[in-house]
Each structure stands twice: as structure tokens, then as C-alpha cells.
Design a protein around this nucleic acid. Sequence first.
DNA 1: CTGAAAGCGCTTACAG
DNA 2: CTGAAAGCGCTTACAG
Lengths: 340, 340
Amino acid sequence: MATLKEISAELGLSVTTVSRALNGFPEVKEHTRVKVRETAERMGYRPNRIAQRLVTGRSGMVGMIVKIKPDMSADQTFFEMLTGLTAALASRDTDLVLAVDQDSDPVTPYKKLLERDILDGFILNAPIVDDPRVTFLQDHGVPFVMHGQDRPDPTYPSFGIDNAQVSAQSVKLLANLGHKRIALINDELRHAYASERRSGFHAAMEQRGLSTDYVQNSATLESHGYMHALDMLSGSAPPTAFICASTVVAAGVMKAVHDRGLRVPDDISVMAHDDALPLTRAINFDPALTVTRAPLRDACSPLANILLDHLDGKPARELQVFQDIETIVRGSTGPAPKEV
Amino acid sequence: MATLKEISAELGLSVTTVSRALNGFPEVKEHTRVKVRETAERMGYRPNRIAQRLVTGRSGMVGMIVKIKPDMSADQTFFEMLTGLTAALASRDTDLVLAVDQDSDPVTPYKKLLERDILDGFILNAPIVDDPRVTFLQDHGVPFVMHGQDRPDPTYPSFGIDNAQVSAQSVKLLANLGHKRIALINDELRHAYASERRSGFHAAMEQRGLSTDYVQNSATLESHGYMHALDMLSGSAPPTAFICASTVVAAGVMKAVHDRGLRVPDDISVMAHDDALPLTRAINFDPALTVTRAPLRDACSPLANILLDHLDGKPARELQVFQDIETIVRGSTGPAPKEV
DNA sequence: CTGAAAGCGCTTACAG
DNA sequence: CTGAAAGCGCTTACAG
């Protein structure tokens, strides 16, 4: 493998100039730059990243720790995210080191990886409310980007959707259709996103003078959606619309509606937030599911770039970005039924 | 972070001596070594891996490329392997860089990763017969370890099970129980392991003068096991025993036996090779499944060590290791039924 | 047993 | 616009 020294010898230039030409410094004469680049190309030069890393003090590697869920439901998602992140990082000469979290304490795997002294930063996902990883990494001065936010006004770089907005948009859609008793089948509140959806839901409902009696915050298996919906629909003044944490939950809810002898959307409207996972496609529902939508895979590139920009010195305040949310109206929502 | 220079200044020793003391060189005086180690500890010294890597010419990173299967059946396995490999590599100061193969050409992802010039070698898995990755990597002088073998006498380091032996042990067990018509429900022959199982099966059967009429080489979903078994059992002289590629296939076979109104093991014996995956546990079958067994997770540590030993200069011939295979007899195998 | 020196392949003030 | 020099933090002949 050719080195800077070899190129400079070949051309009778200094290593300094060759380095500058290759790195696109403006002070190099055009003619020199061209000659250097041609020669580098011809000699098959590729910079030694290790040397670059030693001198710049950066390792060119960032870490991500994945938590194994017992149900392993997110596998396809995982691979999709992995692919996207790897590609986005590679385009900026950075590699991803992956570790698996098998510890009970959430910060232990970060501590372990940190002790190896090879990482410039971390990509965190699945924040819980007041995530202990945030305190730990900030205390140790370790840069990271969070996919999502663990608190309302974070001091770290983040990318994710505005979950209060997800609820607000959903409530608005349903309220405009005349629904008054709207249910929220939410995830457990320790998940930051679920907590935000709940707040957003409360705010949007109360603003319209609507009751927030129909809220469930629990795990988000299909069976939970089914059970909660069944339960709510058997009350005396049942909800006429359901906002679901995910398309999986919506599948359970729609089954419950059906089992109660009711129809979607004539009797009951159902909508969900859709991360655009390949497993449960909202469009394949019968009727096709109305959703707020923000594809998970669209987060890969922003996450990578935000972290790397932060490593390059960009302050955290400028690196809190929200993903756009679409609202897609399909067949599962309709006007509220006439009250009897 | 303390450096060698700081420690040497603190102690009035040369950087050279400090380096040698820390790296356990024998020529350092015991007293010096102790002092150096204490001081390093006290100052919180941790070697700068990037610097070590620059001077040793090693990057301390190895790559693995995972191929996404559409069915994603191997997820749990994947995470288990990832965990094991990461830990085994970390104990030898090496990190794993993971990439996802989305290309049609099997060598393209290796080429891409190689161009980033950051890897010391690769861990390959799921070899197909005469695997093109082998030629590619060998041509480029890139070290690797293969989980399994793509040909009978490979010239590269490898770790895996002796698949001919798997078949041999299975046939022996069943033949000793008096079975004469033994079926093999095998994976597609392009997979190296399946090809080896088939050869081993043929050799073992022919050695006993038994016919090898009942062999199927196809994908290994449960449904394939079911269909092939149903098919074979409807013939005029049906097999009395089945050797299955995996526990998943065995599940299909046992269902077929049941649907034919036959019983395991009274009418039909069934056995499988068991990689000890958490998903389909042989012991939970009814009756519990007789198996040849070699846990996949036991391969992690050997794979890591073989690759690293190879990088340290150990020749490939000494690095072709086979994993032990147990035979565990449970309730799904029994004496061959009396011929009518 | 210990140390001064060279070097791994880069980047980047500093000087001209 | 270009170059000589220092330095990133280590390892390792070579000399004593």
C-alpha cells in the first residue's frame, strides 16, 4: 500500500504538500493538486486510517448497544437499522461497533465498551424516562446521539419524532370526524415515547374538552391491544375511536372490534402510529389502517450525521432534530356514529 | 488519560522500560515491574490502542458479514453468536465490525469492507460448496476463519462440526436398532454442510449394504420436513426412520408421522442434528427428540481464537478444528418395527 | 537489566 | 504556494 512518503518521493514534493493536496486544502496550487491526485490514484494510495486516527485523536468508531428482547420482535427492524446506520457512518469514514446488552444494569455495557478506549461516541436507542445512560455518559464526557428523547428538553443531540405531536395529530383527525370518546392504547410509561404520547394525548383532548378516561399504558403485544379494546368496548359508554401505539397493537384492537360484532370504521375508528416496519404493514389491514407515519429507517442517516457533526464540534443545542410525521388517512377511520 | 511518557516521568524511568514492564517482558527487574505496574494503576493508565495498532500494523478489528435471510429464522441464534464472538474477541483486545450483506454477489460486501482498510481479518459463516469468498479472500491475502468448511481439505483455518460424522453416528444408532430403510431429510446441497451430511450418509449406509433411496435435499423449513415425510411414508416400502437436518425439520416430520396415523417411536424413529438453538428445543418434543448435538454457541470462542492465532502467525494447517458431537438418545428412536 | 533512538503514517502549526 | 519539523503514543531493534 502506497504511503504519503512514497507519493512525495515519486513527485519530488514534500509529504506536507501531498497531504494537503489530497485533503483538499485551498492553498495548494491547482496544478499540484491535480498531479498529486493522479499519482495517488495511480499508485493505489489509500490513507492509513489508524495513523489518521492517532494524530487526530479520533478513533473513527462509534458504538451501539442492543438490548435483546425476549420476544425478539424487532429483528427485521434491527437489521434494517443496522444496514442503514452502517452505510451512513461509512460514508463519513466511521465504523460501527456493536455490542449486546446482557446485563441487568443499563449502564454496565457502556462502561465495559468505554474501558476499551476505542470509541468516539455512542448511538443510543429506546430511551426510558430519565434514562440513566444519559447521566452516565454525560458525567464521563462521552458524546452520543439519542434516537428519541428521554426528557422534554434534553441537553444532548437527538433525533426522533415529536411524540406529543403524534397524539395531537391523531386526536385532531378523530375529533374532526366527530369522535368524542377516544381511547389511547399506549406503551408502558417508562418508555419515554409512551410518556410523551400520553402527555400529548391529554393536552389535545383537554383542549377540546374531551375526557381522557380511556387510556391504557401497557406492553404492546397484539394480545394487549385485543384485551384492552375488548375491555373498553364492554363498558357503558364505550369509545368510538382508538389511537394505537403501533400497527401491531392496532391489529389486536381491530380483532377485538370484530369479535364484539362491531365494524371498522362504521362503528369504531382505529388508527395507529406506523414506524413503517416490514412486518406489519398498515396498508395490508382490512380496512387499510389510517396512520401517523414516520419510517424508522429514515432515522439512520440523520442519527449518524448528528453524532458525527457533534464529534466535529457542533453544539448539542443545534443538534436536536425532529423527524417529519405524515398523517395518512385510509379506510379504518370514519365519522363518529350517531349517538343513540 | 495517562501515557507511557507520564508514567516514565513520574518514575524517572525510560518509556522503553515502562512499556516492557507493562507488557510483561522477562528482562525487566521484578522490583521495577512492580513499581511500574503500581504507578500505572494509580495513574489510571490504559494503553492507547490506536497507537499500538499503528506500530504493530494490526487494526485490532475483525469483520463479519451477515446475510439477511428473508425468513429471519436465525435471529436468536444471530444474537447469541454475536454476544459470544464479541466477548471472545474482546478478551483478546479485538473488536468486531459487523456489516449486513445486501448484495447479490457474495464477495461484494467483503470487497467494500476491505477497501476501508481497517480489518485484520474476517469470520465467515454459512459456507456454500466451493465458496467464492474463499478464493476472493485468499487471492487478496486476507486472513479469515470459516465456521464450517466449504470443501473437504481446506487450506484455511476453520472450526465446525464433522458433518459426515453426524450422519455416520445417526446411521449407526438407527442401524443398531434394526432399521434398514432410513431417510435423510437434508438441506440444499449447495450448503457445504448438507453436502457433507449426504456423503457421510451414503458412506455409512453403503457400508452396511443399505439403500439410499430415501434422501431429500431441499430447504429446511418445517413445512418441507412435513411434506417430504408425508410423501415418503405413502410409498410401498416406506422408511422406518428419519434423520433430519435440524430440529425444525424434525418437527415437520413428526407432524407428518402423526397425520399418517403412525406413532413415534413405535412405528417410526426420528432423530435430528441439534445446534442447541433456543427456539426449537429437542427436549420439548413429544416424545423428546434423539439427537446428535453440537451447540452453535460453543463455536464462538474457538472461532475467535483460531482467527487471532492465525493473525499471530500460526499456520492454517494447525488451525482446522472440529467441534465434538454428542449423541443423545431420547424417546423418539426405538427398535425397527417387525416387518409384516 | 535499562535507555536513547528510530519509526509506524499521518496532520498541522510555523516559517518562508 | 511549499517545506522542514514536531508530534500523536506506542513498540522494538540496537547499544550498553
